[in-house]
Amino acid sequence: MLALIGRRLANSLLILVVSTFVVFCLVALAGDPLGELRDRQPPVSESVIHAEEVRLGLDQPIPVRYLRWLTGVVQGDFGPSVKPNQNIGKELAPRVGVTLRLVSVAIVIAAVLALVAGTFAALYRNRLADHVISTGVFVLIALPSFWLAVLLKQAGIAINKAAGARIFFTVGDVSVPAPQDWLPLIVDMAGHLILPTIVLTMIHFASWSRYQRTAVVESLSSDHVRFAVLRGLSRSRIVGAHVVLPALIPIVTVIALDLPALFSGAVITETVFQWRGMGGFLLESIANRDANAVMAWLLIAAVAVVLFNLVADILYAVVDPRVRYGEA
């Protein structure tokens, strides 16, 4: 088990290094961070531009820049930003926590919902419950997350107005100023989480529940379920231990594969609800063509994806003895 985790970890590290290199090259080749400076009217003097090039390391060849960037990252330095007085690491650190809060809560809720809805739809396949769930899920899959986010936000505002009180928080990830004690702080944060979490959860739970439905339908037709029925086991025992338990393996894979999409969704959701999370930072950096800032963002997202995948691998081993014993 430990060996398995170790091997996966080493593998992931390799992927991270290669993937950052590829993305680094893409980002470096895609455009000139100083383009805006060069186009400025009246023109900025050559010497200023050159100094800026040296500060950002643009005068070096890409492999050298990558190595410099990598050694910096290992020591916690994400490199210079286009904005002269911005420290990328310091700026990003608090935002990571904010976004991870949103993403983790959404994953857990969406996974539980998908399990329940998918299993339910499969057990009542082609009956009313299935038709209702499946149609709802299809509509949710087709919903653009930003549209749903805007809709919920405006609905929240309308409800607040109608009630004359703040029922839903529609702006920010925490009140300003934030409560001092930890209990009110948590309650406050949870309150701010509600609407964005609904958006993120709805979009992802929908497609996951389709996979869960397929997995359970397949599991239901397998021989060991038939045998469990023929042994006279109770319905609840059959559903729990013989239908759902083996069907957990595919859903873990699907969730793990969908994590980058979750980060993409978080960017949009945070933008609409004006959170001070990773999303805002990303959009601002992109607008500034701040290569190092975007790299830092992508690196953190990639590390998060890799870590969540590791959790998925461990879950596999928990669910499936064949993985645990290294046979599959």
Partner: peptide
């Protein structure tokens, strides 16, 4: 797959 599409 480790890269969030929208960002890149």
């Amino acid at each position: 797959l480790t890269i969030p599409t929208i960002a890149l």
